[in-house]
């Protein structure tokens, strides 16, 4: 095994081009587990922690360009207004120690369906900024980024530099079910974002299908229900039947499996409950005129 320590982004891209099997390592919260447990022996480890720009972010008018290695702890602390859904998701990640190291780039690179960031990214709307020495930068919409269980759209010579996430234009919510009250891998997770500017609702589902997914049929149903009823203008309470239908469609969007963490039936059921609750919380917040709401944690 070789340990590569590029001092700059350009060096990192060059190293990845030269050693396409090199495994990028930043927070180490996935890679080191695999190495410690002898599940993986990469030819090269490509350490990205010396590249300062990866832990920085820029807030633009429409989006936040979030460096791939910005730790979850900082997202929680500093980006609650701009990225409320992701900030909530960040708070559910493992433990304080892990949140100090792990970042969204790692979640995307691993592309586990259980990655905590994915539902929030899907709901907010995001593009993955991938780059290679040979072909430069390309933006991959997060909806098409996940290509299979632990597979993503990256080419072997590409690295994730940043994620461009739409700034919240309305309330966002995030809930995750685990069988423990902290430090737990998702049995399933649900992200929801209201986008009053486009009068749309977007969703993200984690751990309930081979990849993170959006509940598109549910979104379409709710978008038209809200549009037709003039709810965006009136801010009225959404009819329970519509909420229920939305939840049912979200559950139907799942394609889960039975595994040690939960049954498929439970995952589908829980996604329905989370869809209903997160919609209620977010809509309540929208009605109240708050841009952001979350539990007092």
């Amino acid at each position: 095994m070789e340990f590569l320590r590029p001092a700059s982004w350009q060096e990192a891209l060059a190293a990845k081009a030269e050693h396409p099997t090199a495994v990028p390592i930043a927070g180490g919260t996935d890679v080191m587990v695999e190495i410690n447990f002898d599940h993986r022996r990469p030819t090269h480890l490509l350490d990205l922690t010396r590249i300062g720009e990866l832990t920085e972010w820029e807030t633009g008018t429409d989006s936040v360009r979030l460096g791939a290695s910005v730790p979850y702890a900082r997202i929680m602390r500093h980006l609650r207004a701009e990225l409320p859904g992701l900030a909530l998701a960040a708070h559910t990640v493992a433990s304080p120690q892990i949140r100090n190291r792990g970042g969204v780039g790692g979640n995307l690179g691993t592309a586990s369906p259980a990655g905590d960031a994915h539902p929030a990214l899907l709901a907010a709307g995001a593009e993955v900024e991938a780059e290679s020495a040979a072909r430069g930068t390309r933006l991959i919409p997060v909806d098409t980024f996940y290509t299979g269980v632990k597979r993503n759209a990256l080419e072997p010579d590409e690295l994730i530099r940043a994620v461009r996430i739409a700034r919240a234009d309305g309330p966002q919510q995030y809930s995750k079910v685990g069988t423990r009250n902290a430090m737990v891998i998702a049995v399933c997770a649900f992200g929801l974002a209201l986008h009053p500017e486009t009068r749309t609702v977007r969703t993200g589902i984690g751990s309930a299908a081979p990849t993170p997914i959006r509940a598109e049929v549910a979104e379409q149903f709710l978008n038209s229900a809200l549009e037709e009823g003039g709810f965006w203008e009136s801010g009225q309470i959404i009819a329970p039947s519509a909420v229920k239908q939305f939840a049912t469609l979200c559950a139907a969007a799942c394609n889960p499996i039975d595994d040690v963490r939960g049954t498929a039936g439970y995952r589908r059921h829980a996604i329905g409950v989370l869809a209903r609750r997160t919609l209620m919380w977010a809509w309540e917040s929208y009605r109240g005129g708050h841009r952001v709401t979350e539990g007092a944690a």
Partner: peptide, 15 residues
Amino acid sequence: GELVCSCLVAAGQAE
């Protein structure tokens, strides 16, 4: 200064 799990920090990253 940051609280971390040292088992998940590759030795080379501590350089």
